[in-house]
């Protein structure tokens, strides 16, 4: 069986500018942040990002990586709005396709199960229809109500962060919610899963129910072991959101000078440099 282990850099080497990339998690919860940080360090640009958005979207916008965001919301959960996404929108520097969050699921699911669209009532009567003029309303061939034909959202790549996986790509969530990570993987040509720990296959179900194995290896291209890979978003039960760090992130975004300092301190080096800088910050707070 294939050993799919790779590094963040190897994942990024398989991505190209202009790609459509789906990012798993939800808001500021279990985001594949080490992979996002690797994209920040790369020369990738002109990306279309599909996300139940959180700081992943904000950071990529701040770094000028984004051409278009496909979204239903962008939020940091405990802080309602992401400052970089706001700034990018308010300056008109990015395109958007804004959908009801259920429509977004439907579009990814349609791509995953290889149908051109899936019908839904969601969107009808709202400005989601007027802001996305390509959306079509279709008649029910069986005589019922008209519905929106939500088109498949095909992803060139998906990146998601789970709690555990084996080297083959069978990946497990141990927190309360799988979010839509498996659907992102199914919708993608290539899916990359980062995890807190890679373990032997048998260990995955030693303590946990097999239903937690939400992602099967047959949809996974690469597995990255990334300890703290979701930081500063939550990755329960491994760790909670780093609320203090998230507050710093928001505060730093308020001004170009403070953002440059934040960027220099945390985002200019390697992932290992990032972890050291985060640990150093925690020490400072304690001192």
């Amino acid at each position: 069986m294939v050993d799919k282990r790779m590094t963040e850099a190897e994942v990024v080497s398989r991505l190209r500018s202009g790609m459509t990339i789906g990012i798993g998690g939800w808001g500021s919860r279990r985001k594949p942040m080490s992979l996002v940080r690797a994209i920040l360090r790369s020369d990738l640009t002109d990306l279309t990002v599909v996300s139940y958005g959180g700081p992943d979207v904000g950071l990529l916008c701040a770094a000028g990586k984004v051409r278009k965001v496909v979204f239903g919301f962008v939020s940091l959960d405990s802080i309602a709005l992401d400052p970089h996404f706001r700034a990018a929108r308010q300056s008109g520097s990015i395109e958007v396709a804004e959908y009801d969050e259920g429509m977004l699921q439907w579009g990814l699911y349609a791509a995953g199960i290889r149908v051109p669209f899936l019908p839904t009532r969601a969107g009808l009567g709202s400005d989601v229809m007027t802001r996305n003029p390509d959306l079509k309303v279709v008649a029910d061939p069986y005589g019922g109500d008209d519905t929106v034909a939500m088109p498949a959202i095909h992803l060139d790549a998906a990146i998601v962060h789970m709690n555990r996986a084996d080297i083959h790509g069978n990946a497990q969530f141990l927190g309360p919610d799988p979010y839509f990570d498996d659907i992102f993987c199914m919708a993608a040509e290539q899916a990359f899963v980062s995890v807190e720990r890679i373990v032997p296959t048998a260990e995955l179900t030693a303590q946990a129910h097999p239903a937690t194995l939400r992602i099967n290896r047959l949809v996974v291209t690469g597995v990255v072991e990334a300890v703290g890979g979701a930081h500063f978003t939550s990755c329960v039960p491994d760790y909670d959101r780093d609320e203090a760090f998230q507050r710093d992130y928001v505060k730093a975004a308020g001004d170009p000078g403070t953002w440059q300092a934040f960027n220099d301190r945390y985002l200019s080096g390697s992932e290992s440099d990032y972890r050291k800088a985060v640990a150093a910050r925690a020490q400072e707070v304690l001192a």
Binding site: F71, L81, F85, R89, E98, D100, A122, S126, V128
Partner: peptide, 12 residues
């Protein structure tokens, strides 16, 4: 002028 959350689940 002000970007808010996004439509979230409101249309549905």
């Amino acid at each position: 002028k002000v970007q808010l959350l996004g439509v979230r689940g409101a249309p549905g």
